[in-house]
Every structure is written in structure tokens, then in C-alpha cells.
Design a protein around this nucleic acid. Structure first.
Lengths: 179, 179
DNA sequence: ATCCTATATGCAACTAATGGAATACGTCAA
DNA sequence: TTGACGTATTCCATTAGTTGCATATAGGAT
């Protein structure tokens, strides 16, 4: 399972609440893993039960109390062990591709609309990633080591989204041709 | 749910057994959806129960009998309805990116090995897709309409795998630099 | 004889993910 | 003062996906 390990990875930067983690998964790092808040809270409870994280309840003013989760030594060890074992490449599963495969069944115009919608969604993700790039990683060779790893994952996000844009345009051209 | 719809999509080409479908999911079209045989057989049973597919038992010589599943009119209608409703972009979930994000925890050499392993896996997928391309889609503008849709999905597979290769090389360069 | 591969189908148990809803505190604005 | 928004957590039902196991026929290899 990787969600628990993804959470541990974020705890490397310091203790987090479920709410904090939810925002991180929704935001910048959402490109390499996504998780709902329900999933995250459930997983945090498991991490604690396993002894991989410990929790402190922090009373707050003007806001509900929060539970701060921190990695334990056992958690750190488990994370390292997980990283060291080889993993498989991730399968791609995308509804749009299934729909396109059966594209003969619907009017061409519908496919173009859907391609445009997807292109827009990918474009806005790409924009967000590019902004992170210029904001935090403008000079890649001057980065501290730990930031290089994060930059590497961001590069994948950029590559991935840019690839979708290229593909959308290519497919629109392909389908526009008279067969 | 998309697996049932992916199966229906394959049934467009003609009746299939669970075994046939398993091979198709493992093979060429595995780049836009993957499923195990257990999943497929379970799903086929559901499709039949829903009236979206009908089954014929075909006795064979020298082999066990097989069950051929064929799409019904109701199945066709359901598939069209599903295609027509908008879908979201697929989230990416890849262990390697999580591992890289926490890359400080392990020796650099391990990361290079893992990047190489992944590069190789992506390379062999890309090779397989490129072969399909030259074999079936050498002249894109002369393709019949239905083949264009299939070519479009193959293009995404190629784009995706080629993107990983580019990224692997980029990251190796990035991490090789003296920080 | 025994094992391996290919064909062909399935169940049971488990783990993971999704979607809907509920709860609770506080601030700010209409 | 009602209602929306942001913070913060949790439960529950359902669906989807993985893993391990089980069964059966038949051909070819060892």
C-alpha cells in the first residue's frame, strides 16, 4: 500500500493534521498521489495503531482542536524499507480513452467537446505546476538536495500534463480529417 | 464504473469469452485499462445479470467449453449513455514518485537503479506500442473511421511511455549534478 | 509418470477507494 | 440572525481491485 507511505513522506517535513494532509494532497503534490480526506483520516488511525505515527491533540483558539501526527522511528524504518523494495510501473486508467475507443457510437461533435473539456482541465493543472516551477525551482542547479527530489516529481507532473495537451491536439487533427 | 463499460466496448467487435477479454486487457489495449481475469469474470456475470450482455455456451474440441458474451441492445444503450456523460481526468498514482519525493532517505545509487528499472519497463511498453503503430496504423489518413479511434488511444499510450523515458533521463541528470 | 503450458472458469477473503452524510466551533457579512 | 465559509474530524455504505486458491481438459516436454 502506498497511501500510508505517501503520508509518512509528508510527515518527514514535520507533524501534520489530517486536515493539513488533505490540503497537501489536493494541492501541489496531487499530481503523484491523490486521496480523499476520509481515506487520509482512516489511514492516519492505522498508522497510529501500527506505531508508525504518534498523535498529539493540540487545542486551538477560535478553531476546533486538531490532532498532530508525527512519524516515529518505526515509521521511518518502515518507510525506508518500502522505498528500498522495487515497485512496478503504474497502470494508466482513463475513462476518456475507453470512450474514445468506442467513439463510433456517438456524434463526432460530442467527442470534440469532451476533448476540449479535458484539454482545459489538463491545461489548468499544467499552469499550476509551471507556476510552482518558476516560484520554487527557478534555478535547478542551485537547489538543496532535498528540493531536487521534489522538483523531480514536479517535472513528472509537468511532463504528464503537457503530454495530454499534445495528445488532445493531435487527436482533434486526426478526427477532423475526412476519412 | 468503467470496467463494465470497457468490456462492453470490446464486445462491439463481436462476442468474447472471459478468456479472450483477459488477453485483450493484458495485451495491446492494456495501456488504457487493466483488469485481472477474476475481475473480468465477476464483471461479465454482472453484465449478464443486468441484461447488458447475453451468454452462449460454446462446446469446443480439445479445450474446455467457453462462454461467449455478446452485447444486448440495452447494453449498447447503457454504453452510449455512459460515453455521453462528461468524465473527469484520471489521477496519476505512482509509487516511484512517492519514493523519489522521500529520496533523501536512501542511498542515491538505489534511486538510480530504480530509475533504470522503470526506464526499461517503460521502454519495452513503448516498443510494443510502436510495433502496433507500424503494423496497423502506418497510414493514419487512410484508416477507416473506427480504426482512427483505436489509433487515438494508442497514441496516448505512446505519448505516455515516451514521456516517462524523457523524464527518467532528465531526473538522472538532475540527481547526478553536484548540489 | 510428472511437469509445464495453454485454455477456460470461477469463489472467498481481504484491502483500498468513493460518495454521502454528520458533527462542531468560530468568523464575517448581508 | 441566518447563512455561508473555513477549520477539523469521523462514520457508514457501497463499489472496485487484489491475492490466493480451486477446478478441469489436453498437448507437449522431461
Amino acid at each position: 500500500m502506498a497511501l500510508s507511505h505517501a503520508i509518512l513522506t509528508f510527515l518527514l517535513d514535520g507533524a501534520c493534521s489530517g486536515y493539513d494532509l488533505t490540503k497537501r494532497f489536493e494541492g501541489s503534490v496531487g499530481f503523484f498521489w491523490k486521496a480523499s480526506h476520509q481515506q487520509i483520516y482512516r489511514e492516519l488511525a492505522k498508522l497510529e495503531a501500527q506505531g508508525w505515527a504518534q498523535v498529539t491533540v493540540v487545542p486551538q483558539e477560535g478553531k476546533p482542536d486538531k490532532k498532530l501526527y508525527d512519524m516515529t522511528q518505526a515509521g521511518r524504518k518502515a518507510l525506508i524499507e518500502w522505498i528500498e523494495q522495487p515497485s512496478n510501473i503504474a497502470p494508466l486508467r482513463d475513462d476518456l480513452l475507453v470512450k474514445l475507443f468506442a467513439g463510433q457510437l456517438v456524434p463526432r461533435s460530442h467527442l470534440f467537446e469532451e476533448l476540449d473539456r479535458h484539454r482545459q482541465m489538463h491545461q489548468s493543472k499544467l499552469n499550476a505546476y509551471r507556476q510552482l516551477e518558476t516560484q520554487y525551482f527557478a534555478h535547478p542547479d542551485e537547489l538543496p538536495e532535498s528540493a531536487k527530489f521534489q522538483y523531480a516529481t514536479l517535472l513528472q507532473g509537468i511532463q504528464f500534463e503537457a503530454g495530454w495537451l499534445t495528445w488532445c491536439d493531435r487527436v482533434k487533427t486526426l478526427l477532423a480529417e475526412r476519412g
